[in-house]
């Protein structure tokens, strides 16, 4: 069985265990610097084998950003959520696209909608929104004041 209750990992990767979500998924908090190593470990270790990145998204928690990684292991059939808390002023985190290729576009999307920068990303540009879009729409303080986009009533 998948085993992430290993204390040695906790110390080595500075993992903080959080409450489970309502659907009984384990959540662990990882420091931004340690994320890449943790993800590599979780993918490569034969006790965990989280071989799939289901999704990656950002959440604006008003005082900080959270980046949430949904990992999935097809071998043990287990879900895991990694949470990384980022400073709101300089949101920057290392890209995990070398570990999971799927992260490439998901990171671009998070950059597009939240403005979180992923260092070492091969091509960090807007993906869903046009390249000349102003601002990052999913931030809670986003106000659309681009007059080109104002909807002309009827």
């Amino acid at each position: 069985m998948s085993n992430i209750n290993n204390l040695a990992i906790d110390e080595k990767y500075e993992i903080k265990r959080l409450d489970k979500t309502s659907d009984n998924t384990e959540v662990i908090e990882v420091k931004a610097e340690k994320l890449f190593e943790t993800a590599t470990y979780l993918k490569m270790n034969k006790d965990t084998q989280f071989n799939m990145l289901i999704s990656l998204c950002g959440v604006d928690k008003l005082e900080h950003f959270e980046v949430i990684y949904h990992l999935y292991s097809t071998i043990f059939n287990k879900k895991l959520i990694l949470k990384v808390i980022l400073n709101k002023n300089t949101p920057e985190i290392e890209s995990i696209s070398p570990v999971y290729s799927a992260a490439n576009w998901h990171e671009r999307e998070t950059y597009d909608l939240f403005g979180i920068k992923f260092s070492n990303h091969p091509e960090l540009t807007r993906i869903l929104l046009p390249t000349d879009w102003k601002g990052y729409p999913l931030r809670k303080n986003y106000v659309n004041n681009d007059e080109r986009l104002s909807w002309n009533q009827r």
Partner: peptide, 20 residues
């Protein structure tokens, strides 16, 4: 207050809905 992920096998693959 809470968060949950629902994963579903759709016609095209896994849909995950992460709800906070």
């Amino acid at each position: 207050i809470g968060e949950a992920t629902a994963m579903i096998e759709s016609a095209r693959g896994i849909i995950a809905c992460y709800l906070v």
